[in-house]
Amino acid sequence: MSETVKVIKEKLLNVTTMEDPFVKLCEKDERKGVQTALIQTKRRLKKAEHLLERFEMMSRFEKKYHKAGFEYIAGIDEVGRGPLAGPVVACSIVLPKDFSVSLVEVNDSKQLSLAKREELFDKIMDEALAVGIGIKSETVIDSVNIYEATKLAMIDSINELGIKPDYLLIDAMTLPVDIPQDNIIKGDANSISIACASIIAKVTRDRMMFEFDNTYPGYGFATNAGYGTKEHLIHLKEAGITPIHRKSFEPIKSMVNKEN
């Protein structure tokens, strides 16, 4: 071919299948730069294919219940059951029936980088019909236990949606509400709605913990989100308990008992 390697690389970025006639032409080009670009194109398309397959798999519950006649299906997830400090945050989200492949990169929030979560946060908020957030503080967690506090946060998130869902997809939990629901094990990896909820909840809570890091410096809340990292535990021992620490969680519980 007469085109430069640079031009060929740019054209390959627009290729959507390895069966494209342009790809066939490139395969006959012996230049190393062109062959490297072909390998990169193949990897890109393979990744895109994998993402689309996962997207279809993660959409099966939503499609199933829409087909059954349910209009507003809410995916529900929480973040923050394990940390030593900070609230538990839940999110309920209702996606439109025709939610787009702009969400193809959505996955369990724990599998995504900070930058990717922030990017997807905006896409999800643009796509969603309704989003509700429920937050239960360390005080509530200490009062009723983390499991019950999580339920309360999830129920609050449903009530904050603005529209009443007629079906719930919940990550590994059953809620005492008068709405039909499906308890999905590893829901954030199996349902697009639950995965979206997990991302919104994660970003929301991380932003809160970043602010707490300014209020209570030294514990590393901006990076550890309140989990018991080495940095966190060392500073906890040196500087003591903050108002956002969960007094029903160890080692804070023992520290409180020792003080009393």
Rank of each mutant, 00 (worst) to 15 (best):
S2G: 14
K6C: 03
V7G: 08
K9V: 06
E10N: 08
D20R: 05
E27S: 04
D29L: 02
K32N: 05
T36C: 00
I39W: 09
K46T: 09
L52R: 11
E56M: 08
M57L: 10
M58R: 03
S59Q: 02
K64C: 03
Y65H: 14
E71Y: 01
A74N: 03
R81I: 04
L84N: 06
A90Y: 01
S92E: 04
V101Q: 14
V101W: 06
D108C: 05
K110F: 11
L112P: 13
D126G: 13
E127W: 05
I133A: 01
S137E: 11
E138G: 11
T150F: 02
K151P: 06
K151G: 03
M154H: 10
P165Q: 06
D166H: 04
L169W: 07
I170S: 00
A172P: 10
L175R: 11
L175E: 13
V177N: 00
I179G: 10
D182K: 10
D188I: 00
I192P: 05
A195H: 06
I199G: 10
A201I: 01
T204E: 02
D206P: 09
Y216F: 15
Y216P: 04
Y216R: 02
G218D: 05
G218F: 09
Y219R: 04
Y227A: 07
K230Y: 01
E231I: 06
H235C: 07
L236F: 15
K237D: 13
E238T: 08
I241K: 06
I252M: 12
